[in-house]
């Protein structure tokens, strides 16, 4: 028996809108730790890792570890039917072939339940090693989204370089080139507008903008995004989900020519 009650149901709506176009089908894993997902895009270039810790739920019952295969597009369709202020409860029976999403309006005057068929998904779980990143950039998520969107109108790839000067996003295309440099800025009044750069070693990596733009669909989840880079390793683009967890996107770099 599984029953997870999330008062801030909009978080789950936002998570689904962020990943449904990147990943088609995925297993949601439920354990005492929390509700999690790890899945790759169909080209095996990007990996999504989601964790919603059990403590973040108002009610969390998971009698035994459960893996539920879901079509993310269909799950997103169902969650779209929940109001932004609704409480969302996820229910499933052990060994059952469906999951139920229950939506309750804040004043309890409307209760809806949507039942979705589960599917068998043969997915490979990857071990993500703990890494000390050479550079970690924390910046406003809206700013990061704007940069990725703007650069993708010029080129297909972005070269991200972190130096003492700051973080530089560069692209080139048929019509020309573009460079955007963001410097560390901790003097702003609001912490969510800060840009903080921690650099051990200068690092420079190239990534496909198509994927970066897809990751920025998670912008509504968090005011800040963390971009962690190490040479010869996938970049991690992380959006914190309130106090309860995170949505991380890993993207393999392009090979430098």
């Amino acid at each position: 028996m599984l029953e997870l009650r999330l008062v801030q149901g909009s978080l789950l709506k936002k998570v689904m809108e962020s990943i449904k176009d990147l990943v088609n089908d995925a297993n949601f894993d439920c354990s005492a730790t929390g509700f999690s997902l790890q899945a790759m895009d169909s080209s095996h270039v990007a990996l999504v890792s989601l964790l919603l810790r059990s403590e973040g739920f108002e009610h969390y019952r998971c009698d035994r570890n459960l893996s539920m295969g879901m079509n993310l597009g269909n799950m997103a369709k169902m969650l779209k039917c929940a109001g932004n202020d609704d409480i969302v409860t996820i229910k499933a029976d052990d060994g059952g072939d469906c999951v139920t999403f229950m939506f309750e309006s804040p004043n309890q005057d409307k209760i809806a339940d949507f039942e979705m068929k589960l599917m068998d998904i043969d997915s490979e779980h990857l071990g993500i090693p703990e890494t000390e990143y050479e550079a970690i950039v924390r910046m406003p998520s809206s700013e990061f989204a704007r940069i990725c969107k703007d650069l993708s109108t010029i080129g297909d790839t972005v070269l991200i370089s972190v130096t003492k000067e700051g973080v530089r996003f560069s692209t080139k295309g048929d019509i020309g080139t573009a460079n955007i440099v963001c410097r560390q800025n901790t003097s702003v009044d609001k912490p969510e507008e800060a840009t903080i750069i921690e650099m051990e070693t200068p690092v420079s990596l190239t990534f496909a903008l198509r994927y970066m733009n897809s990751f920025t669909k998670a912008t509504p989840l968090a005011t800040q995004v963390t971009v962690s880079l190490s040479s010869e390793l996938p970049v991690v683009v992380e959006y914190k989900i309130g106090e309860m967890g995170y949505l991380r996107f890993y993207l393999a770099p392009k090979i430098e020519e």
Binding site: M40, S43, H44, V45, A46, L47, E124, H125, L126, G127, I128, P129, T157, T206, A208, L233, P234, Y250, L251, A252, P253, K254, I255, E256, E257
Partner: peptide
């Protein structure tokens, strides 16, 4: 065009 690497070449099956 820079060739694209796959995520599976960095992270191993667990």
């Amino acid at each position: 065009v820079n060739p694209q690497r796959q995520i599976t070449s960095f992270f191993s099956k667990s």
